[in-house]
């Protein structure tokens, strides 16, 4: 009996260790990324590193402002397209489609989430980029005759990113809308609102923290996405002036340059990783705090 209890206790400890491994990993990731990146950041000067606009490792210039701007530009565009589309899909799934059809639609959304990032990049490169250079550019040139683009641009990256973050926005928003208590719907209908008014004025406001959490997580995904963005944005580390300009992103620059970087350059890339890590960490903790408020832990 006593031995039994000992076994039980040790197993409990073992399980605790298993549960703690994720936490230990986060700690290790933090330590190793910071340890590898901080020297370059402090060597170049934190302010210069964060706000310098010149990223040319060949000349020893490591200002990441253009990279941050590139990431923000594609992320903003992705959200601009992704939020309305995602929320509409969520409404469609949760309130309008009958159960069976909703299951099919949900499966489609899961597939969208499952398609590898390189495939998105490849599809964007072969289909979207030529559309931009052949069809979008001439239209744009009517507004701005000086516009030039190869197609590799904020538009290409942002559009594909929007598709990639849709599953995150749709599934969490749908969850939030579905979990609004039935009473709300009934009460709203009882005071004479129709279905559309119920959705727009009652359900979406009631689910707003869940929807917000989905947007923040989608934003995190967009900022962290690497392969597709790297293939589609052209990787030019300059401050963009228009939506058809090429940009370099934080993630794309790391992946692109890591393979041939010299020691200082490599440290600087880890520095870029630190910036990325901190942004993502803040976004995720915010999403979690919002989701917890709503009473459900955030999920992808």
């Amino acid at each position: 009996m006593r031995q039994n209890r000992f076994v039980e206790k040790s197993i409990e400890k073992l399980l605790f260790v298993a549960a703690a491994i994720a936490t230990i990993s986060v700690a290790l990731i933090t330590i190793f990324v910071f340890r590898s990146g901080l020297p370059a950041m402090s060597g170049y000067g934190f302010a210069n590193f964060l706000f310098g606009a010149d990223w040319s490792p060949g000349n020893g210039e490591y200002g990441i402002l253009a990279l941050t701007a590139g990431t923000l530009a594609v992320t903003f565009l992705a959200l601009l397209i992704g939020i309305p589309t995602g929320v509409c899909c969520a409404v469609f799934l949760a309130e309008i489609l009958p159960k069976r059809a909703a299951a099919v639609f949900k499966f489609a959304i899961e597939l969208l989430a499952g398609i590898p990032s390189v495939v998105y990049g490849f599809f964007g490169l072969i289909v979207i980029v030529p559309i931009i250079s052949e069809h979008v550019l001439p239209l744009w040139q009517r507004v701005n005759p000086d516009a030039q683009t190869t197609g590799l641009s904020i538009l290409a990256g942002g559009f594909i990113l929007a598709v990639m973050i849709l599953p995150t926005i749709v599934s969490i928003s749908e969850n939030a809308i579905s979990s609004v208590p039935q009473d709300y719907r009934e009460a709203s209908l009882a005071v004479g609102a129709n279905k559309r008014e119920t959705i727009v004025r009652v359900l979406i406001p009631a689910a707003k923290s869940g929807i917000l959490a989905s947007i923040i997580l989608g934003m995190g995904r967009a900022i962290g996405e690497t392969m597709a963005v790297m293939v589609l944005t052209g990787n030019v580390a300059m401050l963009p002036k228009g939506i058809l300009d090429p940009v370099a992103t934080l993630t794309g620059t790391i992946a692109m340059e890591m393979s041939y970087a010299g020691p200082t350059h490599q440290e600087a890339l880890f520095g870029v990783g630190i910036v990325l890590f901190v942004i993502i960490l803040i976004l995720n903790l915010a999403a979690q705090a919002i989701a917890r408020k709503m009473g459900a832990v955030g999920r992808e």
């Binding site: 700690a27 962290g224 993502i280 979690q288």
Partner: peptide, 21 residues
């Protein structure tokens, strides 16, 4: 909380970590 944080870390950061560690 940290398990959720791990879920949100982008793959390129895992790459950097994997490389360094």
């Amino acid at each position: 909380t940290f398990t959720e944080v791990l879920a949100g870390i982008p793959s390129i950061i895992f790459g950097l970590f994997g490389f360094a560690f």
